[in-house]
Amino acid sequence: MSVTQIIQNRISTRAFLDKPVSEKQVRDILDAARWSPSGGNLQPWRVYVVMNEARNRLVETVKKAIAENPLADESELAIYPPKLAEPWRTRRYDLGENMYRLLNIPREDKAARIAHLLRNYEFFGAPVGIFFALDRRFDKGQWAHLGMFMQSLALIAEEQGLATCMQEAWAARAKTVSAFLAIPPEEQLYCGMALGYDDPSEKVNQLRSSRASVDDFATFFKE
């Protein structure tokens, strides 16, 4: 596939097959992604990979923390503004409703919606979880570099027949995850990413989000 096709085909996969991914596969993807753009060649990203038994222990640790305090919010970053304005509010709302429609979960079934949301903390069944952090001394520029690195990683995985889901939901359990991974205090955890093979039989993987047209976000100056 071309780069264009990979970008257009990649989705946030929310159901994975029970099929292992080797350490070599993960290392090969990271080895290619490390060539992502980086201002001043700072390469500011820090990456933490969980797989096999470590992955399972982390899932159980987070499940226990959720059971003990289901309303805890350990976020240090505001993933979304507190009052999302238009058109962004509608885009987010429509995406969620389209997903739950595919899952046949009505709006009034809040328990089922929450249960699906909690699947984030199982990596949606993916065998590999990847976490991303930055040194706290960095600012917006380096956060942009991290985003480019994550995009590169996701596209390389797609090229190699793997699927991903970038999971900002992990920010709500940042302290628990950071403690489990022994992330040093000078680093700030951003989010996680599920990595594995997509399950084509699951309806949720049919979800395709819409995109604004070029004219909606681009301004051309020609004279």
Rank of each mutant, 00 (worst) to 15 (best):
Y48C: 06
M1A: 05
F131Q: 01
P184G: 05
K19C: 06
I130N: 07
K83W: 07
S38N: 08
W170R: 14
L42Y: 02
L153M: 13
I79K: 06
P82E: 09
A15G: 00
K110Q: 09
L162H: 10
L117M: 15
C191D: 15
M150T: 05
D18Y: 08
D215P: 11
S178A: 04
V59P: 00
I6G: 01
A154N: 13
H145Q: 15
D135N: 10
A218I: 15
V26S: 01
F138D: 06
Q43R: 14
Y48S: 06
V50Q: 02
R173V: 10
A33R: 05
A133N: 05
A67N: 09
R55I: 00
A194L: 06
L102P: 08
A172L: 14
K110C: 03
Y100I: 02
L103S: 03
L30M: 01
A154H: 04
D139W: 13
I11D: 10
E187A: 13
E108K: 12
D199I: 00
P87A: 12
G147S: 13
S38R: 12
W143K: 12
Y93W: 13
G129I: 00
F124I: 00
F16L: 02
S36R: 14
G161Q: 08
E122W: 13
Q160E: 11
K24M: 13
V21L: 00
E202C: 09
A154D: 04
S213K: 11
V49R: 04
P81M: 12
K63V: 07
Q188K: 15
S152W: 11
S75G: 06
Y190L: 11
L181S: 03
I66M: 00
Q206K: 14
N104D: 13
F149K: 00
L189H: 01
S22C: 01
Q167H: 00
P184R: 08
L77C: 10
L153Q: 08
A157K: 06
Q5H: 12
G39I: 12
Q142Y: 14
A171G: 03
E86K: 04
A154F: 11
P185E: 02
R10M: 03
A133F: 00
F221K: 10
Y121T: 03
D28R: 08
R92Y: 10
T219R: 13
K203T: 12
G39T: 14
A32S: 14
M148G: 13
A126E: 01
R57T: 03
S75L: 02
R89A: 10
P44G: 06
W170C: 07
S213W: 12
I7K: 05
S209G: 11
E108V: 05
E60R: 12
L117C: 08
E159H: 04
V204H: 10
E168D: 15
R101I: 11
D94F: 11
R101F: 07
S75Y: 08
K83R: 06
A157S: 01
V204E: 11
A163P: 08
E68V: 00
M166F: 11
M150C: 14
R14L: 08
C191T: 09
